[in-house]
Design a protein around this nucleic acid. Structure first.
Lengths: 218, 218
DNA sequence: ATCTGTTTCGAACATCTGTTCTAATAATCC
DNA sequence: GGATTATTAGAACAGATGTTCGAAACAGAT
């Protein structure tokens, strides 16, 4: 079983792991086929059979979603010199979670209360980071020089305070805003990253959290 | 949902938890029916519907083994409307696919050949759009005014041509670059969105595709 | 090119699985 | 007891899912 994995096989294994994490449920053959770009279920099954024969996974007969991965990380001999480097820089893999997308913030209600939640989006945790994360849709161009555009979705890690130059989401007059956090001689400022906008005095603002990711669909 | 559970309901919940633990897979309605001693699938479904209405579990429509228990720790009886942001129960929305992250582009080789693929990332299709999508890691600041930073990951929909003002990924001298596509009087230009960079004559460039999404971890 | 082995596809099929209906049974209340 | 509700059962159906087969597409070697 020490064989080297083809790119397709690696993609299938990655897809199984990610899909399982994303939905908290092992994928079906069709889901695998679609995720990997195979147009036939039979092709997915073919790949599964190969990987099964190589010992990379198990599949229970005739059981829906009966695929389970076998942990065979490294330590396996016969690792050819070939593709070792590719696995190192895993940008995203593994943990997926469902994050709430906040809509209009209602005054006097806990941030993550049902009333504030518009939707849920499942994303890789490695993309948005650990902690209590929620999502916000950016309105306006005040942060354009920080490469955050109108309509972008930002991930925010909940925290009551921040450090200088952090990009934070804050609640000012019951509406959420994204700005750069800056504290000087006793005052808190929320700075835009756009010359056309004015800094906001943030002494009475409530820091929602720190921006940990930016997502944009164009 | 403060109702008291009947014996049968408790048995169903226990069975779901036990079966899931035993096989590392949520049970089907028939498996539940057998475990609890119900002779009809419909009876199991009836119980599931009850528990679902009471909020003890979720079930995804028409998805096999789509039952997941809701953590409602009875430790505190006063469960007010403002439920904590229990991240656990997903409202998983949309299709997930595994997309290849391209690394260094090798000359004369099809874009999506094995040699070019560094990794795979599974993302919601709704984020990156439909079509043949691949991912690229952005290097450099040439698109900063389009809110694309160094280190961002972009999703690219493969297509050989583009329309004016599209943001495209193109292959120039065997290296990938992200620019704005512009065609004027017989010439193709690849325009940066940063005054510090010069336009590139793209007549001999190969258009890889159009940028459909931008992802950034900060 | 031809051969050979691998991979993909499409379709048909069998089975698993969720859904919906009706009727029968059990439990509860008056 | 009778009436009402809750629960179970059965069957038929629809959809999801795994399996199998043959042909086609593909890649690599001869």
């Amino acid at each position: 079983m020490g064989e080297k994995l083809t790119q397709r096989q690696q993609a299938v294994l990655d897809a199984i792991r990610d899909l399982r994490a994303a939905k908290d449920l092992p994928p079906t053959l069709r889901e695998i086929a679609e995720a990997v770009g195979l147009k036939s279920v039979a092709s997915a099954k073919y790949q599964i059979d190969q990987l099964k024969a190589m010992g990379y996974l198990e599949q229970r007969d005739n059981i829906s979603r009966g695929i389970s991965l076998n942990d065979m990380d490294d330590s396996n001999g016969s690792v050819q010199a070939g593709n070792q480097g590719t696995q190192g820089n895993n940008v995203v893999s593994g943990n997926f979670k469902s994050y709430p997308l906040l809509g209009k913030i209602a005054a006097g209600i806990p941030l993550l209360a049902q009333e504030n939640i518009d939707d849920h989006i499942t994303l890789p945790e490695s993309l948005v980071g650990k902690g209590d994360i929620f999502l916000l849709k950016v309105k306006g161009e005040s942060m354009i020089d920080a490469a955050i555009m109108d309509g972008d979705i930002i991930a925010v890690r909940q925290q009551a305070t921040a450090e200088n130059n952090d990009i934070v989401a804050a609640l000012v007059d019951d509406s959420a805003t994204v700005k750069v956090f800056k504290q000087t001689d006793g005052h808190t400022w929320l700075l835009p990253r756009n010359p056309a906008f004015e800094p906001i005095l943030g002494d009475h603002a409530q820091i929602m959290g720190k921006v940990t990711a930016v997502l944009r669909s164009v």
